[in-house]
Computed example of a mutant assay.
Amino acid sequence: MVRTFLARGLLIGLLAGLIAGAFAFAFGEPRVDHAIALEEAAAQAGAPDPDAGTAEHGHAEAAEHGHAEPTGHSHGEDAVVSRPVQKAGLFLATGLYGLAVGGVFALVFAGLRGRVGPRSDGRLAVAAAGTAFAAIILVPFVKYPANPPAVGDPDAINSRTLLYVVMILVGLAATAIAVATARRVEGGPWARWTAAAVAFLVPVVAAWWLLPAVNEVPEGFPATLLWEFRLASIGTQLVFWAAFGVLFGWASDRAERRAAAHPLVAAPS
């Protein structure tokens, strides 16, 4: 049975990744292009002699904007990976992301099935996908949202990454606490859901308040572009998890109905 869930998770994860890639291509890439244009314009404006600029000056400009490169600027025609190739590679990246997430989700789903959450496979899949999005994506994103090109300090990459990972761990721990709390609370669904929500929010809000803020947005960067890029970033994740949860839930319900109609044929392997 685990092999069935794993195959389902991989296939649906790949499909959801491609759907999310299409969303990112339509709504995220134009903002990336705009941010890169601003970065290049700032680099050119800071060059004292564009026709005789040195490689060292190019390094300094790139480092100032958080993109230190070995040979000049990384986004133009002479980039190691050109923008058209980067845009095509977006679908490869989201597809591989979907495969990885789908495989892990399927294994976790197999472990949760019949033990936690709704008894229906379809409802459990949707609930698990929504919980994963909240814990792994939304919780760290609220504290440390994504930044477009031209925003970011290269010296702070490691510390920012560490803080982001800490927020993911907080989200996962808060989810475990919420589930354990809901199972121990007596009463109807409203009492359990309320207790679970409070148990989830207390450690998350505490982490939001205690962990240091990271503000790397340079002065003068367009607020509208920053806001649109971050919306596209979280929107891509929302599209992925929504598509994955719905499709995995639909496939699980369909398999459950087939197993009920043909119990001998659909016996677990």
Rank of each mutant, 00 (worst) to 15 (best):
L15I: 07
L99V: 01
A41L: 13
A68Y: 13
E216G: 02
V179H: 08
G28P: 05
A243Q: 04
G117H: 07
G117Q: 08
A93M: 03
V239W: 07
E216P: 04
W190D: 00
F23P: 02
G114H: 13
V246I: 09
V80D: 15
A43P: 10
G114R: 10
L6G: 02
M167P: 09
R183I: 00
H34A: 13
G152Q: 10
A63W: 12
A178M: 06
S120Q: 14
A45Q: 14
H262D: 08
S74R: 11
G152N: 07
P222I: 03
E69N: 14
S120T: 06
L264N: 15
G53F: 11
Q237S: 03
E256Q: 11
A88R: 15
V202Y: 05
V139W: 10
E39M: 15
P263L: 04
G188S: 02
A223M: 14
V205W: 05
V126C: 11
G89H: 10
G58D: 11
S74C: 09
M167C: 04
A251S: 14
I234P: 14
A174L: 04
A132K: 06
S269E: 09
P218A: 03
E256I: 01
A132M: 10
A7K: 15
G187Y: 03
A213Q: 06
A79F: 13
D51N: 13
A267F: 12
G235P: 06
W190M: 02
R230T: 01
G103R: 02
S74Y: 13
A42Q: 12
S252L: 06
R83C: 03
L163W: 12
V204S: 04
V185R: 08
A20I: 00
F141Y: 08
S269A: 13
